[in-house]
Design a protein around this nucleic acid. Structure first.
Lengths: 239, 239
DNA sequence: CCCGGAACATAACCTAGTTAAAAGTAATCC
DNA sequence: GGATTACTTTTAACTAGGTTATGTTCCGGG
């Protein structure tokens, strides 16, 4: 069930039938993983990469004092660590935030597919570059946006990325995160996340309750977030 | 003069004589650019990528209120926008922070070289993945580190990256940045950068004066930064 | 040698977000 | 159906870093 991944790739560039076949051949197995399990530990040597099929994953780093920063959230159809194919050791860990279904791509298969299909190699490269663009947007959020604008921006980003794989629409999306998880994404405390969510609700922009984000005013939300979806690269370019 | 770039690549993986020749053939010209000029504007269509030969460049984004966030600093030997080869439009701008010498690599040449040398293609991919790792470290800094630890971490990172190309040693390095530039890197105000620099100086860790970073206590600096150079991928891995 | 402009420095005050503690809600399990 | 556990909400005191303002130092140009 890697349909979400194909959908995501095709939102960026065309994928031929032969290439689709090659992509399907990347995966050796699928695994189910319970919530809150670290599936990749920073620094360990890798010979596989993981595609998220169902659930939510995150990349994170911890500091000595126990505080944690999430650097990216992954939605179905995302490769959580395709960059591990070239890096071989990650600078961050990857954990499940919900129960997850994960497809495993051994590096030797990625090696074979990218050698035989240079166009796919470029497309894979592109997707890791989009991850970097997401990181840059988070750098901007953490460095310069206020808590409310930061939170609004995250909801806009997730809505857009989930919509590509059919998991969100104008009205909202399911999001099985705790307020603590959100705090670890946004460089805030859970307490302040709670206050910020209240303010977003009271301003009639968005509601986050019982694992669902309900968008009340998408235009208003984008306005206070200064959200420009360009960085997600969702309009295919001639390449 | 792309020797710095070759040095940087060879710090990560071996580069054959033929590959070196191919890399040299990437560049069509060199340009001198004065300080404080935006050389690439977010959103414009690209058909070249820029390698920094001399000087300092940064990637940045602005918000409507005029505040600016730098997402990465570039030192000699860095490609400022190799990711533009796959993205074709950048989500950020790139500007000079000092007078710079820049080498121009047209995308059609990158296309030709990566097609003929799949190993170089993987190496280029790797370098953009290291940029992403640097972004993640900044996300951690901005989200969770205190101002002093954040600043210490930046100095550690720059020292390491400049050392690879022979521009820094244990004792320090030249850094022609203003305190305002530093503030735009660190998500702080220039005033607080000034306070933080004073504290680093008073604690006997680093001194930043007249465009030079003098390291007084590297071990102490790394300690308060919780600096682990692993993310810069400076120990070649079998690939 | 003085002027103008940029960068650096420092002080006084302000605020967004933190910390800590306690209580409320809601699923889940035996 | 009551206990357990996880998550959310609220409050109040506190602090890191922001804001504003004023001075100083440095440097190149006329």
């Amino acid at each position: 069930m890697i349909e979400a991944y194909l959908r995501k790739l095709r939102a960026r560039d065309s994928v031929s039938a032969g290439e689709e076949e090659a992509i399907r051949s990347l995966f050796s197995e699928e695994r189910d993983v319970p919530s809150d399990k670290t599936v990749i530990r920073a620094g360990e040597r890798l010979n596989i990469s993981l595609l998220l099929v169902e659930g939510l994953l995150c990349r994170y780093k911890d500091l000595r004092d126990g505080s944690r920063q999430i650097s990216e959230l992954h939605v179905p159809g995302d490769f959580a660590d395709l960059h591990g194919f070239t890096l071989k050791r990650l600078d961050h860990s990857v954990m499940t935030l919900t129960r997850c279904r994960i497809a495993v791509a051994p590096h030797d298969r990625i090696q074979a597919v990218t050698t035989e299909h240079p166009h796919l190699a470029r497309l894979f490269w592109l997707t890791t570059n989009i991850d970097a663009a997401i990181h840059r947007e988070w750098v901007l959020s953490l460095g310069r946006r206020s808590a409310i604008s930061r939170m609004a921006h995250l909801f806009c980003e997730l809505r857009e990325r989930l919509a590509v794989v059919g998991l969100a629409d104008e009205s909202g999306f399911a999001l099985a995160l705790t307020q603590t998880d959100l705090a670890e994404c946004m460089g805030l405390t859970a307490v302040h996340v709670n206050r910020t969510l209240r303010e977003l609700r009271e301003r009639g922009l968005v509601e986050f309750r019982s694992r669902r984000v309900t968008i009340l005013d998408l235009a208003g939300l984008r306005r206070i977030a200064e959200f420009d979806p360009g960085y997600l690269n969702l309009e295919p370019e001639p390449r």
